[in-house]
């Protein structure tokens, strides 16, 4: 039983990380109507920006993380201005291909700057807390708490601010948003800022949970998309639920499958959803 609960904890931690990525993918799809394949590598970039802050500039953890969120958002907006916004009129499929190119460019750039080896934020092993036989790492609490905090902020933004509502409106009906006088370009930029911040947070948390590596984000792309599809593409709240399901399923699969096949579990769940209910469990859009 304790073992099982321990796995549940791992699942929630992983699910929180996946959720931050999946929300971004879902928002981008809602607003720009394309599957952003560079999202995993955007996460990696955020993680390495934080590393640069911690190790390179010797900043305190929180300052480095804050800086990394901002820098990643800036890069996301920059990529949109330089590439995606120019290809937007062409077709979502061309955007997708372009994002695959961006994914590779980001990854190779990271490898050129920081090298191909594993990195960590802090050396030394922190002592886990123990509750009734359950071991919980301080970092795990920080990850889940941080992810929950960011999601709450996003929720408040989407529900209670003018531009948050405009984002939801544009996701619902981009033409009507334009007819209503909503500045859609600004909404797009805002979407990239939010997606960039969340992706960076996901990358940092992943780096805290495991290690930093140039393909860490790419490896999370499949679970992230699985979660977004599971929750219904274009539905950020569904993405959170989907992420928890995927995270838990991946960790629990280790009870019966070799751990190496964790990504396959995300894929299997995604296939089941695609076959059974392509709009996701909460009835989002079909791509």
């Amino acid at each position: 039983m304790i073992d099982f609960l321990q796995i549940v904890i791992y699942g929630i931690v992983l699910g929180s990380i996946i959720a931050l990525g999946a929300i971004g993918v879902s928002l981008i799809f809602g607003i720009l109507r394309f599957a952003h394949f560079a999202h995993g590598d955007l996460m990696t970039l955020g993680a390495y920006f934080a590393l640069a802050g911690v190790a390179g500039m010797s900043l305190p953890m929180f300052a480095a993380f804050g800086l990394a969120l901002g820098a990643t958002a800036l890069v996301a907006v920059g990529i949109d201005r330089a590439l995606y916004s120019r290809l937007q009129q062409v077709s979502p499929i061309i955007l997708l291909i372009s994002s695959v190119g961006v994914a590779l460019m980001l990854r190779s750039l990271i490898q050129m700057i920081w090298g191909p080896d594993n990195e960590i934020y802090q050396s030394g092993i922190s002592m886990p807390w123990t509750f009734a036989g359950l071991r919980i790492q301080p970092t795990q609490v920080m990850i889940v708490g941080g992810a929950a905090g960011l999601m709450l902020l996003l929720h408040l933004f989407l529900q209670h601010t003018r531009f948050g509502k405009a984002m939801r409106a544009m996701s619902d009906n981009p033409d009507l948003a334009r007819l209503s006088g909503i500045n859609t370009q600004r909404v797009v930029i805002l979407t990239w800022i939010i997606a960039g911040v969340l992706a960076a947070a996901a990358g940092i948390f992943l780096g805290m949970d495991t290690r930093l590596h140039p393909i860490m984000g790419w490896k999370l792309l499949l679970p992230v998309f699985a979660a977004a599809i599971f929750g219904g593409i274009g539905k950020p709240y569904g993405a959170v639920a989907g992420a928890l399901v995927i995270g838990l399923a991946q960790e629990m699969s280790t009870l019966i499958l070799p751990a190496a096949y964790k990504p396959a579990v995300a894929f299997a769940l995604m296939v089941i959803i695609l076959v059974w209910r392509p709009t996701g469990i909460f009835g989002g859009k079909v791509l």
Binding site: I93, F225, P263, F267
Partner: peptide
């Protein structure tokens, strides 16, 4: 399904084949 799903599914297959 729309081609985006094929893209995601083929990425998944590539990953599983590699595993």
């Amino acid at each position: 399904l729309r081609s985006d799903y094929l893209a995601i599914a083929t990425i998944g297959i590539a990953e599983i084949v590699r595993l």
